[in-house]
């Protein structure tokens, strides 16, 4: 062991201050990794809530208080969906930026699972339509399939990173996605808006409150 460089570092105080400095630094690093995750939960929460409320309000059998023209509701939903996918891709890359090594493979597989599962569920739905699935049932299938997909992948994320927020979110999305079909169309849109949108927004707020309180 050689110490060629002069020590210009600041001396540390008592053990309590030192331990507090150590823990504060580690918390700051974890917060920096968590910020994009909170944003993702927030963005997807707004998209599920507003997007599916718009679809529900765009159906004459949906919202009893007012109706949005379908030519507004459907494009609004699609624009929000595409914007959220783009934002997630950008934020997802930022979570572990500057890091390489063993965990990069896990992160890459996790990222790929969204694209692979999203495509598979779309192909399955298209296949079912080609085999005679009615538009009413397709309206039940697609949103439920994507809620189940999100729930399943979040369970995988929870296992990979021992992340309780993803575990709870995953279980809620699986329950809401599965139950939404019983509401029929377009009632399922309301169930998904409140259930899935609410779950994402609750997760975002919970993480934000927890980091504010230093836990």
């Amino acid at each position: 062991m050689t110490n060629r460089t002069p020590d210009t570092d600041e001396p540390l105080g008592d053990p309590r201050t030192t331990l507090a400095l150590l823990e504060a630094q580690q918390r700051q690093v974890l917060n920096a990794q968590q910020t994009p995750v909170i944003w993702m939960y927030f963005i997807w929460g707004v998209t599920w809530l507003v997007g599916f409320l718009a679809l529900w309000s765009g159906d004459v059998d949906g919202n009893p208080w007012f109706t949005i023209p379908a030519y507004v509701a459907t494009p609004l939903f699609i624009v929000m969906l595409v914007a959220s996918i783009v934002a997630s891709a950008v934020l997802g890359v930022r979570i572990n930026r500057g890091v390489r090594g063993a965990s990069v493979f896990s992160g890459a597989v996790y990222g790929l699972s969204w694209t692979a599962c999203g495509t598979a569920f779309a192909v399955l739905g298209t296949g079912l339509i080609s085999q005679g699935l009615s538009p009413e049932l397709a309206n039940l299938y697609f949103p439920a399939a994507y809620a189940l997909m999100c729930g399943t992948i979040y369970l995988g994320g929870a296992a990979l990173w021992r992340d309780i927020s993803q575990l709870v979110l995953g279980l809620v999305l699986l329950a809401v996605g599965a139950a939404s079909s019983f509401a029929g169309s377009p009632g399922n849109d309301l169930v998904l808006a409140i259930g899935v949108g609410g779950a994402f927004l609750t997760a975002a707020v919970t993480l934000q409150v927890r980091r504010r309180s230093g836990r």
Binding site: P11, V29, G101
Partner: peptide, 26 residues
């Protein structure tokens, strides 16, 4: 046990074993 090096080691310790971090990100 010195301010800057404590912060550096504390930060590097948050990386899982087998991972490395780029200098600019650190």
């Amino acid at each position: 046990h010195a301010s800057a090096r404590l912060k550096i080691t504390a930060t590097l310790a948050t990386l899982p074993v087998g991972d490395q971090i780029a200098f600019p990100r650190l």
